[in-house]
Simulated assay, not measured.
Amino acid sequence: MDWPVSVALAQAVQTLPIGADLHYEIKVDGHRLAMWRDKETVRLQTRSGRDVTSVWMDLAVAGMQLPAEVILDGEGIVYVDGRIDFGAAQSRANSTPARARRLAGLHPAHYAVFDVLHHPEHGDTRGWPYVRRRELLEHLLEEYGIGPPIQAVPTTTDVDLARTWYDVLQDQGVEGLVIKVGSSTYRGGTRQWRKLRHAETVDAKVVGFTGPAARPRHLAVRLSGGRIRLSQALKAPLAAQVSQLLQGAPPGRRAWTTAGEPYDAVDTDVMVEVLSGTTRHAVVTVTRLR
């Protein structure tokens, strides 16, 4: 399998899907990471394909317990005072390697794994159905005695239990649920899964920006129905995150939003969360990168 791997995505839904062959996973609030166990080391990549091993080095060290040629999909999370803290994970992701080491000393990272994409005996497992991949993942962790900070996310086919998770675990930093079809294969780059979240946000694709790419002021995002809107002014930490992705994109052309505001168009796969209550207006509020 070639680096980086294209990861599967989820489409937001407003109500909990119910039906045959549905599996419900806890959705933790962290940073999406694929873990590659090579022959001599471990590498970690983001959803967009960036190598971020240097800022998640404690997870890379933990991943050395895995056999060579394993590739896992999951979320890097950080606990603060017994609760999953997205802000702490975001701080880690935006750190320099030196600062990341200091943060790891205060709040070590954990890896909430939910899929296995490659296995030393079976090769590429993305064509397997979800239920078979899940069984392989659980067997792998048990066979090699893998425990925290690497741990499989809970999953169930019991819709009542899933509702209970959704209702009572929010205070622990659980963002919601991810719903997967048991017979489904792993299709990177597609929104094949569904997600039900507590936060009233929607996903939007970044199609451009205003200001310099090294310090974007606003993002142009495509909303449902194809509308293009400008975001509110980006705060410095979010602008710094976005700039790392924009500067690697090919130069774009001048374009205009649905309301007529100019922006520099850019072709990326960058997605952001925006507050759903702001999408009816000319300016939307971006909460974070996805």
Rank of each mutant, 00 (worst) to 15 (best):
L161A: 07
S54V: 00
D115R: 14
R92Y: 00
P148Y: 06
D81E: 10
L136P: 02
E69C: 04
V52K: 15
A89H: 03
G87N: 10
W165Q: 05
D171P: 07
F114R: 11
H139P: 03
G147L: 07
A98K: 11
F86Y: 09
R102V: 05
N94T: 01
A62I: 03
S48Q: 11
V61W: 07
G87V: 03
T125L: 15
Y79D: 07
R132Y: 14
H107L: 06
A109I: 03
L161H: 07
S48T: 10
R132G: 01
A89Y: 01
R134M: 04
E138P: 00
E121M: 10
E175D: 09
T125R: 15
I150Y: 05
A100S: 03
I84Y: 09
Y130R: 09
R92L: 06
H122T: 04
V80C: 09
A68H: 11
T125W: 15
E143V: 04
T164K: 15
I150P: 04
H122N: 11
I71A: 06
A60S: 07
V113R: 08
D171G: 09
G87E: 06
Q90S: 13
A98R: 13
A112C: 09
V153C: 08
W128F: 15
A88M: 14
Y79K: 11
G127R: 09
D51K: 12
D115K: 12
R83E: 04
G173I: 05
R47P: 00
T156G: 07
A152Y: 02
D167A: 13
L140H: 05
W165R: 05
D171R: 10
P120T: 02
R132C: 01
I71N: 01
R47M: 02
Q65K: 11
D160R: 14
R83L: 11
Y166N: 02
M64D: 03
V168Y: 13
Y166M: 05
T125M: 15
H139K: 13
Y166G: 01
G76C: 09
P129V: 04
A93V: 00
Y166Q: 04
T164A: 14
H119E: 01
E175F: 10
R134S: 03
D171S: 09
I77F: 08
R102F: 14
L103D: 01
Q45G: 06
D81S: 08
T155H: 14
T157D: 06
T96Y: 08
D160N: 14
D124K: 09
Y144F: 15
T96M: 08
T164N: 10
H122C: 10
E75L: 08
H122R: 15
E138F: 00
G74S: 08
V159W: 15
A68R: 15
E69S: 09
H119Q: 02
I84K: 10
